[in-house]
Computed example of a mutant assay.
Amino acid sequence: MLAAITLHNIPEGLSVGVSYASGEGGEIGNLIALAIGFQNAPEGLLVALFLFNQRISKGKAFFMAMGTGLIELVASIAGYYLTSVVDSLVPYGLAFAAGAMLFIIYKELIPESHGDGNEQSSTYAFIIGLLLMVFLIETF
């Protein structure tokens, strides 16, 4: 679970960095950072709760969950500097980040979330989250 979340957070960080480097005055970067930030808070909480349920102390669970999110900072800085130096990499960087996130979601997170009789609630949560993202994109 920790590896899946950490791998999932790398392209999220890349997408934030590439979005800021895209030259849109920070508007796209702000939107992407806000959207990813909205879903990172409950994601980190769930990682910490999962670890706590595995009999890991609260402090250690907190720092392990925080570590899965800190990888985004490193990835966003790398994505920003890489695409700001070579402007032609921006569309490829955005495409790679989106594709990598979708791969991790479909390969790791969706199968994991649909175990133990949680198929219906996981599917509804996925649909609501997708609709919320569409709403945010259209609103901002």
Rank of each mutant, 00 (worst) to 15 (best):
N40L: 02
S76Y: 01
Q120K: 14
F38P: 08
A65M: 00
L31S: 10
V47I: 04
G59R: 07
P111C: 07
F96M: 11
G117R: 02
Y81D: 06
L34A: 15
V47G: 02
T123Y: 03
S76D: 07
A35D: 01
G99Y: 10
G26H: 09
S57K: 07
D116I: 09
G59T: 14
M1S: 14
V47R: 03
T123D: 09
L2E: 10
G93M: 05
F96Y: 09
P111Y: 13
I10T: 15
T6V: 12
M66S: 08
Y124W: 14
G23V: 04
T83M: 00
I28Y: 05
F50R: 13
S113Q: 05
I36A: 05
S113V: 01
L94I: 12
S57C: 02
K58M: 15
Y80V: 03
P42L: 08
Y106E: 09
G29F: 01
Y81A: 04
L102G: 15
S22D: 03
Y106T: 13
L45G: 11
A65F: 06
I137H: 08
A75S: 15
E112P: 00
E138D: 10
F50H: 12
I71D: 08
G117W: 02
S19I: 00
Y124F: 14
G23L: 03
G93I: 00
L2D: 09
I28T: 09
E108S: 12
N53R: 13
F62D: 07
S121A: 15
A98I: 14
V85E: 06
F140E: 08
S76N: 07
V18I: 01
H114N: 12
E72T: 06
A75N: 08
M133A: 15
T139C: 15
K58L: 14
L34F: 12
H114D: 08
A75E: 10
M1C: 13
P42W: 11
G37I: 05
P91V: 03
L45K: 09
S88A: 04
V85N: 02
L2C: 03
L45Y: 13
N53D: 14
A41Y: 07
L46E: 11
L102E: 14
I128W: 09
V86C: 08
S15D: 11
D87E: 03
A95D: 14
V18C: 03
Q120S: 15
V85T: 06
K60F: 10
T68W: 03
M66C: 10
G13K: 00
S22Y: 03
P42D: 13
Q39S: 09
A65P: 00
A75V: 08
S84P: 02
L132Q: 00
S84W: 00
L130K: 05
G99M: 09
N118T: 09
S15R: 07
K58F: 14
Y81K: 03
Y80C: 06
F126K: 04
P11C: 01
S121R: 15
F62E: 04
T6R: 01
S22M: 03
V74L: 13
E119N: 15
I10W: 11
A95F: 11
A33R: 07
V16Y: 00
